[in-house]
Structures are given as structure tokens and as C-alpha cells.
Amino acid sequence: MTDTKPKACETPTAKQQRVWDKAAPSYDKQMAFFERVQFAGGREWLAERAQGRVLEVAVGTGRNLPFYAKDIELTGIELSPEMLAIARQRATELDISADLRQGDAANLPIEDGSFDTVVCALSLCTIPDPRRAIAEMHRALAPGGRLLLLDHIGSSWPPVYALQWLAERLTIQLAGEHFTRRQLPLVRSAGLEIVETSRSKAGTVERIYAVKPGVPIEG
């Protein structure tokens, strides 16, 4: 049985692993509503732009898997063993060949410049160090490679932002969940060039398509 009790001197990463291990059995059911209402079309948007050797950071239970093109070469990294087990089962059911590994977004177990596309969906809101995670995604990309992000962020409407800030007083403590973060400045400061961005739902949902500068290396 998974131990879900907080540990003394628990690191932020260890806390996230514990939280997601506990959430894994009910995660798909909980997310179904939000993906229909708040994030509708987001996973399809990511998958349509992914190409070549694709790395998905925080692959979770594999909810993006049905949307990827059949000709991509997919690697997925996930911190939680319980979430990863569900992703592997989903890949088997969909007859998708994917290299799904346990790992930390802040220390990706991959070689420099080894992917054409890096995807991260609805995860930088909980990853303890999003700046470090984006730097790792940048490292993973080959020159000319694509970074594709989908996440909830701080609203552009002040009354909603205020409610998000209040909610964070509880959610950060309990589950490491942030509602007022925004990833776009971190992507820019990491040296990636923005190709496309959009915000929706009172500015609380953002999609980002950026590229790593440089000429793509021919395989």
C-alpha cells in the first residue's frame, strides 16, 4: 500500500510524488470534467504540433497518448510510479509503442539535444521548480526543436486572480498546486523563441508554442 502520510523534512519533489501516487487511481475521473470545460481541445492542440522524437514531461496517466500521430517516437517521463503504471497500461491498450520512464522534471534522465519536440501539459502548475524544469526541457531539445505547453495560470481578470491567490493559500500547502504562476516569462528567459501563444477562460488557460534557436539537425 502506498504511504500517503507527510514525512518529516520531506522535500518538495518527494511531496509531489506522494501526492500524485495518492491521486493516481481517481485522476482520470477527476480530470474528465475539467478537460471538457476548461481545457477543451488543449491536448489535441499539443499533439497536432508535436513531431519527430517527442518527449512528454510529466506524462501522468497518459491522457495525451490517444492524440499523438502514429509516426512519432514517444518518450514519457513521470515522477509518480502509480501514475506511470496507468500510463503504461493505457499505451498497451492503445497499442502505442512508447518509452515511459520514472524521472524528475528538474533532472530529466535524457541526453542533451535528443528530442525534436518537448510537451508538458497541466503540470508546471505543480512542479516545484518550474524555471529549472523549463531549463531541462530546453536542454532536451535539438536546435530548432519545439516546446509545447498547456497549463492553467494566473487570470488576466483581477477578481479571478484574487480568488486564485486565496485558493493557493490552501492548495500549495496541501498539494503543491499553484494557480497564479505563468510560464511564458520563464520560457522567454530560458532563451526559447515564441511562435504562438493564446489565453482563454478569463486568461486562466495558456497554450505556448516556442522553439529552441538554431538550425534543425537532419537525421
Rank of each mutant, 00 (worst) to 15 (best):
M1K: 10
D3M: 09
T4A: 15
K5N: 13
C9H: 14
P12L: 12
P12Q: 10
K15T: 00
R18N: 04
V19D: 00
K22I: 04
K22R: 14
K22E: 14
A24I: 07
Q30V: 15
F33V: 09
R36H: 12
F39K: 08
G41P: 07
G42E: 07
E44L: 15
E44N: 11
L46Y: 05
A47C: 15
A50D: 01
V57E: 06
V57G: 10
V59F: 05
G60S: 08
T61R: 08
G62M: 10
G62I: 09
R63C: 04
N64L: 06
L65P: 01
D71F: 10
E73G: 06
T75V: 12
G76Y: 01
G76D: 03
E78I: 00
E82Y: 09
M83D: 03
M83K: 07
M83W: 13
M83F: 14
Q89V: 03
A91H: 03
A91N: 03
T92W: 10
E93D: 11
E93H: 11
L94G: 12
D95E: 11
I96C: 01
S97Y: 08
A98V: 04
A98L: 08
D99C: 06
D99G: 02
R101M: 15
G103V: 03
G103P: 00
A106I: 10
A106N: 10
A106V: 10
N107D: 13
L108F: 00
E111D: 12
G113M: 13
T117W: 06
T117I: 12
V119P: 04
S123L: 11
C125N: 09
T126G: 04
I127R: 07
P128W: 02
P130Y: 14
R132A: 15
I134R: 01
A135C: 11
M137G: 04
H138L: 07
A140Y: 02
A140R: 04
P143V: 01
G144Y: 06
G144P: 01
G145V: 03
L147S: 01
L149K: 13
L150R: 12
L150V: 07
W157I: 14
P158M: 06
Y161R: 05
A162R: 09
Q164W: 08
T171S: 14
T171M: 12
T171Y: 03
Q173H: 14
A175K: 12
G176C: 07
G176R: 09
E177C: 15
H178V: 04
L186D: 10
V187D: 00
S189K: 04
G191F: 01
G191C: 02
I194G: 04
E196G: 00
E196L: 00
S200Y: 02
T204W: 04
R207M: 06
R207C: 05
A210N: 06
A210F: 06
I217F: 12
E218K: 15
